[in-house]
């Protein structure tokens, strides 16, 4: 499903050498490693936000090594959620749908469906700056899921959340995983993914 072969990349003092990864459809894989080990860089390489020096990225058997990020069937949930501060919650979630030229009624219905599923319907008119950490995570997740990515990349999704919110977040990610989406979850905290991941990969700096 997701096949990363012999990936190589270097930036500044950091070098990634010969990194490979094979995930099946529906896998929930935890990518564990300390800060500075290059976990986020791996996600950005898979998402196409950084160009590979060597190696390849295959998704569903198709070579996406040179595919620009906007054309990869990948969703990336950023550590700080990266919500657009000048757009409302509704506009944030509708953003990827509008890019794809979907008509307004369909956009509205899709946003309402995902907002209801992620329990953020009442926040649709709010601006991201007024949301709590947990609410921001749900909005960012909704924005990523509306494009139906084949692979969902999660970059330390719980690092900005307090302990009670983390439990909610685990339940939320469990629900997403149950839909059969292949998930690669980057974290430095193994306890975060103990009930979520069916696969674990550790990287060292």
């Amino acid at each position: 499903m997701l096949s990363c072969r012999n990936m190589e990349y270097s930036v500044g003092d950091f070098t990634l050498r010969d990194f490979s990864l094979e995930l099946e459809r529906g896998d929930y894989c935890a990518l564990l490693g300390p800060s500075g080990s290059g976990k986020t860089v791996i996600l950005e390489l898979i998402a196409g936000l950084r160009p590979l020096k060597k190696g390849s990225v295959f998704i569903e058997g198709k070579d996406h090594t040179l595919t620009p990020p906007q054309h990869r069937p990948v969703g990336l949930l950023f550590q700080d959620y990266a919500l657009f501060p000048h757009m409302s919650v509704y506009e944030n979630i509708a953003y990827p749908l509008n890019i794809r030229g979907i008509n307004k009624i369909e956009v509205w219905e899709t946003v309402r469906t995902f907002a209801a599923e992620l329990d953020i319907s009442k926040h649709l008119n709010r601006m991201p700056g007024t949301l709590s950490g947990g609410e921001k995570q749900r909005v960012a997740l909704a924005r990523t899921l509306v494009i139906h990515p084949l692979v969902l990349l999660l970059d330390e999704p719980m690092s900005a959340l307090d302990a009670p919110l983390r439990e909610n977040s685990v339940a939320l990610l469990n629900n997403v995983s149950a839909k059969g989406i292949t998930i690669l979850h980057v974290t430095h905290d193994p306890s975060e993914v103990c009930t979520l991941a069916n696969r674990r990969i550790s990287i060292v700096p």
């Binding site: 936000l49 620009p68 700080d80 953003y95 890019i99 794809r100 924005r143 990523t144 494009i147």
Partner: peptide, 22 residues
């Protein structure tokens, strides 16, 4: 923040659209 531009790219926006809308 460059992160916002990267987020838009990963959501399907072309570089020009990112410039124009973000």
């Amino acid at each position: 923040p460059e992160r916002l531009e990267q987020a838009a790219r990963s959501l399907g926006a072309s570089p020009f659209r990112v410039f124009r809308q973000i």
